[in-house]
Write a protein that binds this DNA or RNA. Structure first.
Lengths: 362, 362
DNA sequence: CAACATTTGGCAACCGGTTGACAAAAGGCG
DNA sequence: CGCCTTTTGTCAACCGGTTGCCAAATGTTG
């Protein structure tokens, strides 16, 4: 029963040990390292390995009596299942991949934490990776992940719809902050927040607005722009897309000249990071926020209230999106893919100091 | 040669497909999904599977002629090695784990990116996880990781030395920002930066300094404190540890009262985040930085120059630490563990606006 | 108590690579 | 050309679980 080739698996481990004494030592060193297997448990419990396997993974397939005996033996040996051995025949790894476009973007912090939480809840491990805002890299990373995870969650992907569908033919995919036909998608309802925001600005006397967009491949940026346009049209306000750039502080700074040239009195930025960058840059140029210009961000990231003035923003349910995506994925994997809609994710206007009454002396 | 139980591995995939037609379809659906194996290559190239295995992983073990034939066949089939099948007998996964204490801390951004880069360079995948500043969680995460990675890198670990050594008996461990006996450690030389900083403050007329520490389990926080004490003693400056807290913006804010009570004219903070929080809180209370009080951070994280005034700080070689840790680990795994020291990592004073001449009217 | 239905456990094949041992083939040399 | 060394490829066992199939054990019922 005991395999006679134990030297096999420990080869790499002993390599790591500084070259020392001769062969004899090697043996004793190994003994306490070899991880227990179901064969060891089987022997200890006096049953067949397959029975152990069933006891440990197929609830109810084995009588309570043997179940108990096996569990005790497993506990005694401090048994841990070998994930590779399990994955080989089944293909299941109990691991989910999450790809974000930029780990330094606080908007993803909550998405990540929400996902992490939901995964842990159902005993799954989350594997995190970033695409650094590059579609190409995103594909590479996703394909590499596909080999080892049970499903992939793409948060704000930069990939094209077709590539995403392609990816989904290998492993289930759930997309956050993007709508892709025939792919499970989670998108918060942004109209709610935008509606409130436009109403808020109108009430403050603004009539000429502007939007600073994010990356061109960003579905969410276009979506926000559409929503803003629609609500402005409804309220008979003028609005134009004045710039677009990286969804970062730096990207926001770079939009400053375009914003000044446009002459709008209030500006929506694709996200808080850009809003912060824009605000900083304008302030350096002597423009007062909100007296001369009102600025609005999206997302309500951690730290958006640290600026002076604190940023008014349209809050996104980030944590809920991350958690929701994982739960949807896990339901799909379990087959309990309730076609029921995921909980509605709503956005909400958060008014702070960066929006104010339009100034008279303009 | 062809295995007759192909239904085996695809079970989960077909589960994901909406329940549809009966059994017959199942067959045709599978055909184009089954990933090619070395057995397929062997057949196509007319050799034994083991020869394929050798050609693909043991350079030089096979004649150039067959090597070419096999590579062509592999390319034609678009073969990708099954990592689980490989990991089962060898234990090697070509994956490294990186555990940070807090993914929202910008100090880790560069460590992560540096590590990511170095790993990609040598065809390793990086698996990222965070301990959310909890020693217990760090252990859980590390143990979970240990099962699937070739080595673990701990960045600013909260674990005790003994636990780290314990962990290292299973898988090689490299520690960043901490020194642990008998464990490979990477720590930047902080004395250089601290020396310059103390000299800088002394030149500005400060005589009474303070230090706001990080978490108690933080080895780095103690180390910085020691260094500061030593340099102050050398320059005959008074210095005291006035507070300690979470290494976050919030933790810094909370130290404000203690700092005010202490009466020092210049404060070192454990890291930039705390420095930013402290500065904000003090400014809200009407204290002028640097006129009333000088503030210094550590690390020079992204954004530390966004504050008003921009933060003076002691820069850490974060990216180099991350990359260096991965390279050390990989060298160890390859057996080429050159006992040669890793490149020296130096810190450096960055003077910006938060440090200034001590005010007279105090 | 016999006949039948249902649990429960064991056997063996299998997932897809890796590797030690060995034999066949190729190359070198006198 | 024969003998010996080296290279190259094959065989078969193995990593550690999972699962279809079957037989034994157990339970149920008339």
């Amino acid at each position: 029963m005991a395999r006679d080739d134990e030297s096999f698996k420990e080869a790499t481990l002993s390599d790591a040990i500084p070259a020392g004494d001769g062969a004899p030592t090697t043996h004793s060193q190994r003994s306490h390292k070899a991880a227990p297997t179901i064969y060891d448990i089987a022997e200890l419990a006096g049953v067949n390995p397959s029975t152990v396997s069933r006891a440990l993974s197929k609830p109810g397939r084995v009588s309570v009596k043997t179940q108990k005996r096996i569990e005790d033996a497993a506990a005694e040996l401090n048994y841990r299942v070998n994930v590779f051995a399990r994955a080989l025949p089944t293909g299941r790894t109990n691991t989910l991949g999450l790809i974000v476009s930029d780990i330094t973007n606080p908007a993803f912090f909550d998405i990540i934490r929400g996902a992490e939480e939901a995964a842990a809840e159902r005993d799954y491990t989350l594997m995190l990776a970033e695409s650094t805002e590059s579609a190409e890299r995103e594909l590479t990373v996703a394909q590499r992940m596909a080999a080892t995870v049970d499903g992939i969650i793409l948060a704000s992907p930069r990939l094209g719809d077709e590539q995403i569908r392609q990816l989904a033919t290998n492993k289930p995919v759930v997309v956050v902050n993007r709508q892709v036909d025939s792919i499970t998608s989670l998108v918060a309802d942004i109209d709610a927040g935008v509606t409130d925001a436009v109403r808020h600005l109108a009430a403050l006397g603004h009539t000429k607005l502007a939007y600073v967009g994010g990356p061109e491949q960003s579905w969410m940026s276009s979506r926000r722009w559409e929503s803003i346009q629609a609500r402005c049209a409804w309220s008979s306000l003028e609005v134009s897309l004045v710039a677009a750039g990286m969804p970062t502080v730096d990207g926001g700074s770079k939009a400053a000249t375009a914003v000044r040239a446009d002459g709008a009195t209030a500006v929506f930025c694709y996200n808080d990071l850009m809003a912060i960058g824009l605000m900083r840059e304008l302030q350096l140029a002597g423009i007062r926020v909100p007296d001369d210009l009102s600025i609005l961000g999206f997302d309500n990231i951690f730290g958006s209230d640290f600026t002076t003035p604190p940023l008014s923003t349209i809050k996104s349910p980030l944590r809920e999106s991350g958690g929701g995506a994982v739960r949807r994925m896990l339901d799909e994997l379990d087959g309990s893919a309730s076609s029921t809609m995921s909980p509605v994710l709503r956005t909400e206007l958060v008014v702070r100091g960066s929006t104010g009454r339009v100034s008279q002396e303009k």
